[in-house]
Amino acid sequence: MKKIRLAIFASGTGSNALNIIQYFKTSDVVEIGFVLSNKQDAKIVNAAREQGVEVVVVSNQEVEAAGKLVDLCRENAIDYIILAGFLRKIPEQLIGLYPDRIINIHPSLLPKYGGKGMYGANVHKAVLENKEKVSGITIHFVNTEFDKGEIIAQFQCVVDEGETLESLQHKIHLLEHANFPNVIKNTIVS
């Protein structure tokens, strides 16, 4: 049986990407085709290589132009693209080739705190400034609008009184690591 092949796109430390790599490392059904980053010095670049995963680094211009991404995905027979902290807008050409097959994780309960510029600490600061009682993560399909694709799953946590940026980030990372790989599996493996 042919394995389902994933491409993971990441721009930073890649803790979610590494978690996904570990989760599927011994899978009989899913394999990682490659990790793509738009930053040569991103921690995920060396970390993924240390896990034995092929890594491709592209420029922001290559992301926007889309051609190289399309070619890489076709050449590697990629079935699904997973965005794990990839801080670039996905080109419409790639979205058109992978309808409902590009999955993103967002560190808020969408539709709240989504859209351009809302990522990482920016989201958590807004949650704290607005004195929200809960926050969480949203795993969703990608469409042509930032953070507006169909929601696959959401998981929440309480925002405690006296919550700090660091403590909220920690809670969100725990939710991401506990849930993202399993949601991917349940979404792509029928």
Rank of each mutant, 00 (worst) to 15 (best):
H173G: 06
G52E: 13
A47D: 05
E145K: 14
H177V: 05
D160R: 12
S27M: 09
I95R: 04
A17Y: 12
G136M: 06
Y80R: 02
K43S: 14
I103N: 00
D71G: 02
G33L: 12
V70L: 10
V58G: 05
I184L: 13
E92R: 15
L6R: 04
E129S: 12
V58A: 03
A7C: 13
K112I: 00
F9L: 11
V123E: 12
F180Q: 07
L168D: 11
N104D: 07
V183E: 05
V158Y: 08
L128M: 12
Q22G: 06
K39F: 13
G120H: 13
I188W: 04
H106Y: 03
E166M: 06
E176N: 07
L97E: 15
V29M: 10
G67A: 14
D41Q: 14
N46I: 11
V45H: 09
F86A: 00
Y119K: 15
G96H: 08
F24G: 02
E161F: 03
I81S: 10
G67P: 01
I21Y: 04
E145Q: 13
I105N: 03
Y113A: 05
S108D: 01
G120Q: 11
S59G: 09
M118L: 11
V134W: 09
A153E: 14
V35G: 02
L168A: 10
V45K: 03
G14C: 12
Q93G: 04
D100N: 12
I4C: 12
V159Y: 03
T26N: 13
A17F: 09
I44L: 09
G85M: 11
I8S: 03
K116G: 04
D28Y: 02
K131W: 07
E145H: 14
V123T: 06
E54L: 08
V63E: 03
V142E: 01
I44Y: 03
P91G: 10
A84R: 07
S15L: 04
L6A: 06
I44V: 15
K89V: 10
I103C: 00
N104Y: 06
A7Y: 08
V183S: 05
E145G: 04
Q22S: 15
N60F: 00
K2W: 03
T144M: 02
G114I: 10
G96Y: 12
Q61Y: 12
L97P: 01
G67T: 07
I172Y: 05
V158P: 00
V159L: 01
F34M: 10
A47N: 13
I184A: 12
D160F: 02
I105Y: 13
S27D: 08
F9P: 12
D71T: 15
H140F: 05
A17K: 14
I8A: 04
L72K: 07
L69C: 02
I95T: 07
V189M: 08
G33R: 02
F141S: 00
H140Y: 07
V57R: 08
D79T: 13
F24Y: 01
A153T: 02
F86T: 00
D71A: 14
N38H: 09
L175A: 04
